[in-house]
Design a protein around this nucleic acid. Structure first.
Lengths: 343, 343
DNA sequence: TTCTCTACTGTGAACGCTCACAGAAGCATG
DNA sequence: CATGCTTCTGTGAGCGTTCACAGTAGAGAA
């Protein structure tokens, strides 16, 4: 009796134990484990019974050592600031990816590259083959880390369209431009004509595309473009507040506002409220994201819903396809206008 | 030229390559890799140079295969609902744990156990030794999964005190009770006497402890306990709204409100606003959590800050210690009253 | 000198798995 | 009867590490 009795973990069964139990060889067990081709029904059944009986679970390290695959993927966040962790969409994305991967029995490794030291460490880790692919979430595009990984031949899928890259890199994105178009069309349909906008940072795809949609629709409607009605925001509450105040100052006759994120829209509502404007009577306000906060503002926010649940599943799908040898692909998903009280 | 030119990954250098490059044996390289004991300075230097030159990164699968350790830990979320992903504290926790682990070069595997099928899959995965330990985040305690893992001898650290378990399981928690005491004392100091509370779910440690703190301080102050001033909430916006409305109905003379979470407090503020009560003039409102939302309410919320950054570092510290063979430990961290405009 | 001790180094044997290959058995075809 | 094909099964090698062990060299003590 040399075994420790204080929560000691027993040595788990190996493929050998299963083989002995089933009366077959390691090879046959391995074949059952990997799809069951070229295995007789009798052996198949015997092996499955032995697996159930022994409680066998494959040792992924041993498998990875020989296959060269790790059967895991990284979820990489490259963000100097903590912004992503304040973004409710990020949660949905992370959760969705985790679960979509879990369906394939693939664990997700969370990696956060804030400092330069972290970037180096993570690059080494990834390029050493410790993950089979990377789900990349970074707001500011043109990320050197993304390039390094791509150059190293690591399967990669970005969330949102990377700008500045002409190279082939997979991405999955909501149709930002079309969403913005829907919102501005909606505001026009309400009879509004002095429509201001608070954009996202213009080094982000969302910032650029949503502004483009805004301009396109106004142009199509014959409303002359007025650059005084455009301010650049930073996706923060404070930024939205400042942006709205600035727009009111530039044009007190403003009758609608398209804000490129709900969080900024929330800030804008505060500023409008403080300025004595009624929403939506005096100024209609449209947001973007359909974050949980959108329903708890007063009035509840009309916004554009991005299909985050589908985005995560698509990212995983495209990444796994790429790991499987397929070429990079771009997927663009439609958005949806959610009408609430603010317009 | 048989090498694929389309992003093919080269075979990475092994310990053998490093040994050859440095003119030493595998054993010496391995010793350098694992602390460098019993290695001459000359060999040490030669190996380090060779590692730099070859770009060698240890193959963790090969290492894990023989050591039996995986050098990774799981971050396990056992939540039937999506609640955690709406909780901003959760983000801070996840981020903090990831980074604290990264400092030890240990990857974090995110696991979400929603359905029963997922629980089984994850249990198998963990007990098979694919992670060295688990950081457990579950709101509702008495989780069968936690018990199963503990019984399997898996190192485990919970976030928040597990209730219902008399057994020894490590945990790290903020001092909920003391935080609640601070808040209620603060409200008393403001001269308030009809102090209501909206609790968290009473099957969560936070729900129980914060209510206990509330009762203790009132008792110490000689304020008779009035159960009509206590309603049970669910940590949701809507729950806070309903709770505040109910309390106003039960006692229109209410002059203070201690709400067990900021999100509920936000809901409560809406309800009070709708009922025509001024905050803090008519009713002082105190929250709990110091979530980002606390500063964007109107008025800004007085609240109790939980040291989430320290909680995450402590969880990691305790878990690694336990993996290293130390006994389970409980860590309780102090909270801080953050005074803002709502009191 | 000889022995012991310490500091260091190299080597073979695992770890648990997959893969390539060799073979066996069954059956049809020449 | 040989030959080929298909379906199935077992075996040896090897993936890249660590670990235990055996050794070597040099210093100091007997």
């Amino acid at each position: 009796m040399t075994m420790k009795h204080t929560g000691g973990r027993r040595k788990p069964p190996t493929i050998h134990d299963v083989a002995r139990e089933a009366g077959v060889s390691r090879g046959t067990v391995s074949r059952v484990l990997n799809g069951g081709h070229y295995v007789s029904p009798a052996a198949q059944e015997a092996v499955n019974a032995a697996i159930r009986k022994t409680g066998y679970v494959v040792n992924r390290h041993a498998r990875s050592l020989i296959t060269g695959r790790s059967d895991s993927v990284g979820f990489l966040l490259t963000e100097p600031q903590e912004r992503f962790f304040e973004d409710p969409n990020f949660n949905v994305l992370l959760r969705g990816c985790t679960q979509a991967l879990a369906a394939h029995d693939i664990p997700l490794l969370l990696m956060i590259a804030g400092t330069e030291a972290e970037r180096r460490r993570i690059t080494r880790y990834i390029t050493a083959g410790h993950v089979d692919g990377v789900l990349l979430v970074s707001s500011h595009s043109g990320d050197p880390l993304a390039e390094r990984l791509r150059d190293a031949g690591v399967p990669l899928v970005a969330c949102g369209k990377p700008i500045g890259h002409t190279s082939k890199v997979s991405y999955v994105a909501a149709d930002d431009r079309d969403g913005a178009r829907d919102m501005v069309r909606h505001l026009l349909a309400l009879g509004r004509r002095r429509i201001g906008t608070i954009t996202g940072p213009l080094d982000t795809p969302g910032g650029v595309e949503r502004l483009a949609g805004y301009r396109e629709v106004l142009a199509e409607a014959g409303v002359p473009y007025d650059e005084r009605l455009v301010v650049t925001g930073d996706y923060s509450h404070a930024g939205g507040e400042a942006g709205a105040a600035e727009l009111l100052r530039r044009d007190p006759g403003l009758d609608a506002l398209f804000v490129a994120s709900d969080l900024m829209a929330q800030g804008a509502l505060s500023a409008l409220h403080r300025a004595g404007r009624r929403v939506p009577e005096d100024i209609a306000v449209g947001g973007f994201d359909d974050s949980p906060a959108a329903t708890s503002t007063d009035p509840a926010l009309t916004t554009i819903r991005q299909p985050w649940d589908r985005i995560s599943t698509e990212m995983v799908r495209v990444l796994l396809a790429q790991i499987g040898g397929e070429d990079p692909a771009a997927v663009i998903l439609p958005t949806e206008l959610i009408r609430r009280a603010s317009t």
